[in-house]
């Protein structure tokens, strides 16, 4: 018959048993309980604030999307990861990195040409990549700057598009948290037409009325 285990071994076995108990409680029961409550009480948020069209998910209103060269869509900020949720992250270029300075200047020239505005009027969010690479928001300035181009490409009156942008401007939460912003994914979804049905979330707490149906040209 084997003798009693050495003290050190017993000690570590006891530590392992404690770890397994904590794993069951904080690693299994706790996340399952949170998931249960979240899925019952807040299913839209828990599933990612999805935007749906014809019963199909076309995105999350929290995750920015690539838009490409087509002038009829509002463009998001530059992204270090090309708006791929499997590659979130920033450029990590230093504040005096010549590559970053050059990138900023090129973005400024490109945006100015694209939106037909003076280079010095291009706002800072249009020439800088976000921290997540998935930023769904742009500044109201950048959104209004794109109105003329989008309206022209769609054959809409600029005033119509401007009104749509105005409806999508979110203020600071409670008036003082964060910054003013426009959600580009939601704005483009609204542009995509009134066939688009929304099944979404509060999330921002901005108290802003959301347009149910978007104007169409």
């Amino acid at each position: 018959m084997p003798g009693p285990l050495p003290r050190t071994v017993r000690h570590h076995l006891s530590a392992l048993r404690m770890l397994l108990v904590f794993t069951a409680v904080t690693g299994i029961l706790y996340p399952l309980a949170v998931t249960g409550v979240a899925q019952l009480a807040l299913p839209d948020q828990a599933d990612g604030s999805r935007i749906e069209r014809h019963g199909r998910t076309v995105g999350s209103s929290l995750i920015g999307q690539r838009v490409g060269p087509d002038p009829k869509w509002f463009r998001p900020r530059p992204s270090a990861g090309g708006y791929d949720p499997l590659a979130s992250g920033a450029s990590n270029l230093g504040p005096n990195n010549p590559d970053l300075v050059k990138a900023v200047e090129q973005r400024r020239a490109a945006v100015a040409g694209y939106d037909k505005v003076a280079p010095e009027d291009v706002p800072v969010d249009a020439v800088t990549a976000s921290g997540s690479g998935l930023d769904p928001h742009i500044s109201p300035t950048y959104a209004y700057q794109q109105v003329g181009r989008v309206a022209k490409a769609r054959g809409l009156k600029p005033a119509t598009v401007r009104r749509l942008v105005a409806e999508h401007v979110q203020g600071r939460v409670l008036g003082f948290l964060g910054e003013k912003r426009v959600n580009v994914v939601e704005l483009n979804a609204a542009l995509a037409g009134d066939a688009l049905s929304r099944r979404v979330r509060g999330g921002g707490g901005s108290g802003r009325a959301r347009p149910r149906a978007a104007p169409r040209g």
């Binding site: 900020r77 920033a90 900023v104 200047e105 400024r108 800072v124 976000s130 921290g131 930023d135 964060g178």
Partner: peptide
Amino acid sequence: AAGGMLEGKEQR
């Protein structure tokens, strides 16, 4: 060059 330190920061 950019007009602010927003590289690597989120608009919101």
